[in-house]
């Protein structure tokens, strides 16, 4: 069973979104996603300052088996990529919702409200439907 924390929002493409106190958001891939990918060996995160659009491929996570794009859940400007993952990509396997975060974004005006995000319950339903 995958872990789906109750305090996060999710996407259909298995990213999670956490709203931080300053109004920016932190983004990562879900426990289900890291498990499906297997042992992660390479991560490419965006540089601070990069503008991303909702749905745009903005990071890459690679396991031994395959490379997978990570999509921006909402439009905004990157404020940080998680540099720790360069040397320790396996952090995503062990702490997908914590130290394994991928990037932080400052949402564009209205972008958070406009984003098509799933509640934990709806994301769990998606996983159940996928057999995961």
């Amino acid at each position: 069973m995958s872990n789906v924390p109750a305090d996060l929002k999710y996407t259909k493409s298995h990213e999670w979104v956490r709203t931080l106190a300053d109004g920016s958001v932190e983004i990562g891939i879900t426990d289900h996603a890291q498990h499906a990918l297997g042992d992660l060996v390479f991560v490419e995160v965006p540089d601070a300052g990069r503008a991303v659009k909702a749905g745009e491929a903005c990071a890459v996570v690679e396991s031994v088996k395959a490379a997978s794009d990570v999509y921006a859940p909402l439009t905004g400007q990157v404020t940080a990529g998680n540099a720790k993952l360069t040397a320790e990509p396996e952090t995503i396997n062990t702490q997908p919702y914590g130290e394994g975060w991928l990037m932080r974004l400052k949402p564009a005006a209205g972008a958070l409200a406009a984003a098509e995000l799933l509640s934990p319950a709806d994301y769990q339903k998606l996983l159940d439907a996928e057999g995961g």
């Binding site: 297997g38 042992d39 060996v41 396991s63 031994v64 088996k65």
Partner: peptide
């Protein structure tokens, strides 16, 4: 079977 636990392991 593609893997049992960890492919790297």
């Amino acid at each position: 079977p593609v893997q049992y636990s960890s492919q790297i392991g």
